[in-house]
Amino acid sequence: MKGYEYHKPSTVKEAIDLMGSLENAKFIAGGTDVMVLIRQKKLSPAHLISLRNISDLSFMETANGFFIGGGVTHSEIVGNEFIQKHYSALSDAAGNIGSKQIRNVATLCGNICNAAPSADSACPLLVLDAKVLIAGPDKEREIALDDFFLGPNRTALEKGEMVKGFHMPPFNENTGSTYIKHTRRAAMDLPILGIAARVTIKIGGSQIGCKDAFCTIDTISNILKHLEGEDLVCEDVRIAMGVVSPKPIRAKKAEAALLGKVVSEKLFEEIAEIAASEAQPRDSIRGEAWYRRDMIKVLTKRALLKSIDRVIRPDDLIHPDRLW
């Protein structure tokens, strides 16, 4: 049996130095993907370099927005109220990855660096304009997440580089974001499709901002109907889609079509159609292409609605629907 050496650096520099000096080495964080690949014999590293004991990777802070260290686990993200409130889409995603046991060890950087088309946290980070902080042997650099993904399991990381963390800018208070993970099973599942949206709305009328005004109205669709004529304008928008192309992508045409418009459910339906046209979903055992395309239309609309809902009724903690 060929085994591997296991290294436990305690600083980022040590980790990078090890990566530079060792042959056939692989970073491991929570290990929920790496250990599976090793067992499946799809990966046979000579060295594993653990990122689990590097304190520089495992913190979060509010700093001109929010910074999340690469080694932060999904459970830590879910448990963070600031993220829940200001970066809800990421909270949505982190709360539905794998299972509790997986979330307790799996890290944000692991999910992103795998660069799977189905990576749940990718879409939220895309719509939250996240930048990836990369540490390398010689320098640190920061790139937009959109530029980080190159294709299935391929990233912009160069030899010897690793992800230190993710920085998300601050958004004004009229911003809401959502991630909808469409699955067959309500837990322990990969998405058939993942849709994230972030919307910042400009608020004209006087009613808004007072959620009590809407407490008797059940759905956001009805609230929007109620607000017709109030000129709720979309000031900023991002839409991202997972599992519909070789890498998680933004629906940029759809975003452009929504920007500056007065929002309505009908408009969202049109936007969702545009988003669907930007995707290249495929048939797989996990879902059929036609269905994925159809669901882009449905879920993009729902993600936009939910995002606005979170602006208008910010105190309602929203959990993604659990359905078959």
């Binding site: 250990m35 599976v36 067992r39 046991q101 060890v105």
Partner: peptide, 29 residues
């Protein structure tokens, strides 16, 4: 299952439930 997909191997490490089938033994230190 050996892949963290069934939870039969769950143990508690420092208060958190984890799948021991995916947990590198060196991290137990």
């Amino acid at each position: 299952c050996g892949y963290g997909e069934c939870g039969a191997c769950t143990v508690i490490i420092d208060g958190e439930a984890v799948n021991s089938c995916l947990y590198p033994v060196m991290e137990v230190e």
